[in-house]
Each structure stands twice: as structure tokens, then as C-alpha cells.
Amino acid sequence: MRLSIYRFNPETDAEPYMQDYDVALEPGDKMLLDVLLRIKDLDDTLSMRKSCREGVCGSDAMNINGKNGLACITKLTDLKEPVVVRPLPGLPVVRDLVVDMTQFFKQYHSVKPYLVNDEPPPATERLQSPEDREKLDGLYECVLCGACTTSCPSFWWNPDKFVGPAGLLQAYRFIADSRDQATDERLDNLEDPYRLYKCHNIMNCVDVCPKGLSPSKAIGKIKELKLKRLTK
């Protein structure tokens, strides 16, 4: 299988470049990660993040043939050769396919992604009806891989100001949680012209999410809630 992989070693390279590889596949190789690890056998200098190899940790998000995805669940049979592998767009490249996720996590933390409930915890758990629990479906499954946020042009142009799809999806995950009591504060927290309103429904986020989630939908619901608050 022929691949063209983005290489950059800050210690030796002035500029990034693309390196071509031709890898002999073994019968068991099914996903792109298998091939990338095979390349590491040939060329140990190739750097990437990977862990669970089953699409739940979010470590190996990268840009594959122009589209963000998780290497461990990207089928080789779905890929046109030469397979072009690049790091996630818009984030500083540390080395090869490893990007600096600081800005991504900074935005995530800024939405206070934890339950806020000042009532003393009950003896068992804070109860939630099955209907209320259903409202978290499509929100809790995010693995914070960064594919969505780094596919968003609004985030490329304003990574320090726009929260981005992943952060906003998690903001809504807690707004929608019946056990959370900080809805008003969460909505206030998204008040400036950039944090939320830089979303222009481009919908690249939905296109690339490896877990099939829709940040656009969640963001739409946040905008709707803010509108409702205005008319109250």
C-alpha cells in the first residue's frame, strides 16, 4: 500500500514535508493504524499518538485523504491510494502526526464540563428519569478526539476565541442534563460574539465525527435556548 505521510521533526527540519512509503500488507491488516504501525517497524522515527486501537480513546485522530478521522477505525478498503496522512488541521504540529491539543482542551475546560449541583448528594445517586437520561444520548459519547474542532474553519481562524464544536457539544451535554443546576450560568458563559456565535453551520464537524455525533445540532439547541431566554 502506498502512503504519503506528513513529516516534521523540529530538531532537524526547517519545514514540514511529505514522505512516501510503500508498505507490504499482512493478511490481518484492516485499519489505517495497522499500516502506520507497520511503517514504524520500517521507520521508527515516525511519531503519532495511539492507544485503544478501537475508536474509544480518541488518540489517533488525523487528517486522512483530506478528511479527519480516527486511524484505528478507518478501513483500508475505504482508502484511495496513495493514502495521504496529515496531522489534524489548524493546531500547532509538535512532530509528524502529533499536534498540540492545548487550545482544544483550553476551550473544553472553559465550558466547565462537569456537573454543577450544590444540593447535598442523596444517599444513593441523583435520580434521573429514563426520558431525561435519553436527552444525553448523542452528547456523552464524545471521546474528545478533536476531529470536529480541527475540521471547523471558524476554529482555524479563531482558535483562542471560538469554543469549537467539541467544547460546545459538551457545554450542551451539561445544559441538557436534568441533574445540572447551572444552566443560566452556562448560557451566560457563551455570551460574547465569539465563543458560540462564530458557528455558522458549516457542518464539517458532523461530517467528520467518528462517533456519529452532531455538534451542529447541539449548538443549534444552545442558540435556541439563548433565544428563548431573550423573550422570557
Partner: peptide, 12 residues
Amino acid sequence: MVKSHALRLWLA
């Protein structure tokens, strides 16, 4: 509650 300036622009 924070004044919803950004929201008003979005609406406008």
C-alpha cells in the same frame, strides 16, 4: 443575567 448583545446581533 448578562446582557445578550451577541444574541441581538445574531438576530439582527
